[in-house]
């Protein structure tokens, strides 16, 4: 058969290498925006600080040095020390570790559960959708902090409880987004085409829907990380999060609040990382959105 390929002009062959370097092009586009650079830098710094805390600082976060208590910043103690003489900079680094741990666990658990439940609600039969929606809405109707306080009062403060509370309350948010996306995809012709080929529902969800719904979800998750970090800090501030010797930005803030008359540095040390984390992940989320959503992608 002679290939009737007259509609592909010669220009299309030139477009092939462009498609190959598209991955780099999106990266380059991301780099072009100064805010996303700022976001990326902050996030990378946060990760480095948390992961390599042992190598960055010579102190232990729990080593008490009563002689040097409530010291102001110096070359010895970059952010000063707290009421027990522990190095605040060290505690901020290790506190970032707790914050990221909580964020990583709770977001990834909530994301996977929300993804599965949302796709089932959106693609499954009507009764399943209604049942899951009822469940989502009931969970959503608890105020997060009240729910967390109630649970922690019952079980006692621990990191795992904080994670559990965050997971339970954020599953419905993700699930609802996934459900809406799934429902709009379900109406499209490619689903019929896949079914006409004999594709089963599981494969339709896994191969055809997942890549479409996961992009927006990552963006949302990235923007949710600061929220989770502040919830953890808030609970730790109230003494309901991590147990005392373990450093957390919330407990540093709490100590700073108690000793505000003695030194302002503890409050600064606990508060600034929270602000920077929020800014970092928000800017990164926006940059991710521009990169991951091909419909917003400009073809320049």
């Amino acid at each position: 058969m002679s290939a009737p390929a007259s509609e592909h002009g010669p220009g299309l062959d030139a477009a092939a290498p462009a498609a190959r370097s598209e991955r780099f092009a999106t990266l380059r586009r991301m780099i072009r925006d100064p805010l996303s650079i700022l976001g990326l830098t902050l996030v990378v710094l946060l990760f480095i600080g948390a992961l390599f805390a042992e190598y960055i600082t010579p102190y232990s976060p729990t080593a008490i040095d009563v002689k040097a208590r409530l010291a102001s910043p110096s070359f010895e103690h970059l952010l000063g020390t707290d009421q027990l003489g522990r190095d605040t900079f060290t505690r901020v680094l290790y506190g970032g570790r707790v914050a990221l741990q909580v964020a990583a666990w709770s977001i990834s658990l909530a994301l996977s559960a929300g993804l599965i439940l949302g796709m089932l609600a959106g693609y499954g039969p009507r009764w399943l959708d209604n049942a899951l929606l009822l469940l989502f809405d009931s969970v959503r109707s608890f105020p997060t902090i009240m729910f967390a306080l109630a649970i922690i009062t019952l079980t006692g403060p621990s990191l795992n409880m904080v994670i559990l509370v965050i997971v339970v309350t954020s599953i419905p948010v993700y699930a609802r987004i996934v459900r809406t996306q799934t429902m709009s995809l379900k109406e499209q012709e490619f689903v019929l085409a896949a079914r006409a080929l004999g594709t089963g529902w599981f494969r339709i969800l896994r191969v055809h829907f997942l890549p479409n719904v996961i992009g927006p979800l990552f963006i949302l998750a990235s923007m949710d990380i600061p929220v989770v970090v502040t919830i953890e800090a808030g609970l730790s501030f109230l003494g309901l999060g991590v147990r005392p010797p373990t450093p957390s930005w919330g407990s540093i803030l709490g100590d700073g609040y108690a000793y505000i008359r003695a030194t302002p540095w503890l409050v600064v040390a606990g508060g600034v990382p929270l602000i920077l984390t929020t800014l970092g992940f928000t800017f990164m989320g926006e940059a991710l959105r521009d990169v991951l959503d091909p419909r917003l992608r400009r073809t320049d």
């Binding site: 012709e189 019929l192 006409a196 080929l197 890549p211």
Partner: peptide, 23 residues
Amino acid sequence: YKAYRREIAMMFQDPVASLSPRR
């Protein structure tokens, strides 16, 4: 039905929308 879907194929109305968008 799956066995017969090897023997019967279907092309859909909208050429672009009938393709899975992320594949």
